[in-house]
């Protein structure tokens, strides 16, 4: 399929920066008292509350249980290194918006308040000075996409714990067996 050509300027700039980051100019991933590679404990808590609204637990596990925060943390120290600043800024701005609207950080809101706020972020209608360097809609877009990757992607990337989403979809492992089931350890016949 043809990739869509819907572009946003920030993604371009980030892509341009990736090479520089890969060459060592970027921020290194370290622990600084947090069990995560990149996130502080507070950032991880905010993100966890967001991703569990994006894919909430019900009869099947939600995003947090599936390890989506771990997936994103891991990619931010790998292919998504250029998005580190976006996450740092974006998660801070979510909490600031939450504080100014409800007087509490995002993780401490009631579920219906979290959903309400996320809708406003998505529509770029979060009334706060917190989003000067980055639009809330754009940040929310990243979090939604990365949550889908972490929840529905292969467990080898750090999310989809125990293949939970594939079990939910009643998929075998791996999801496509293909048609050829040959055993390379046996000599070829014919």
């Amino acid at each position: 399929m043809q990739p869509t050509l819907r572009l946003n300027r920030r993604a371009f700039l980030q892509a341009a920066l990736t090479a520089a980051a890969a060459a060592g100019a970027g921020v290194a991933c370290s622990r600084n008292g947090s069990p995560w590679r990149f996130f502080t404990l507070d950032q991880a808590r905010t993100l966890a509350s967001m991703v569990d609204q994006i894919i909430p637990p019900d009869q099947d596990a939600g995003a947090v249980w599936a390890g989506v925060v771990n997936y994103i943390d891991r990619q931010l120290c790998g292919p998504y290194q250029a998005l580190q600043e976006t996450y740092r800024y974006g998660l801070g701005a979510v909490d600031q918006t939450s504080q100014s609207n409800y007087g509490k950080v995002f993780a401490d809101l009631q579920s219906h308040q979290q959903i309400e706020l996320l809708h406003r972020l998505e529509e770029g209608k979060a009334p706060s000075g917190a989003w000067k360097q980055l639009s809330s809609a754009e940040f929310f877009g990243y979090v939604v996409d990365h949550t889908m990757q972490g929840f529905y992607g292969d467990p080898r990337h750090g999310g989809n714990r125990e293949g939970v989403s594939w079990k939910m979809l009643n998929l075998p492992y791996p999801p496509i067996r293909g048609r050829v089931r040959s055993d390379l350890s046996k000599p070829r016949s014919g």
Partner: peptide, 24 residues
């Protein structure tokens, strides 16, 4: 694949939340 399916957006399909999970 599941991620491709889940990340496909179109008018009429919820983009996130309980509705999206149900849809997938």
């Amino acid at each position: 694949l599941p991620y491709q399916f889940a990340s496909r957006t179109a008018a009429g399909i919820p983009r996130w939340g309980a509705g999206h999970k149900d849809f997938v």
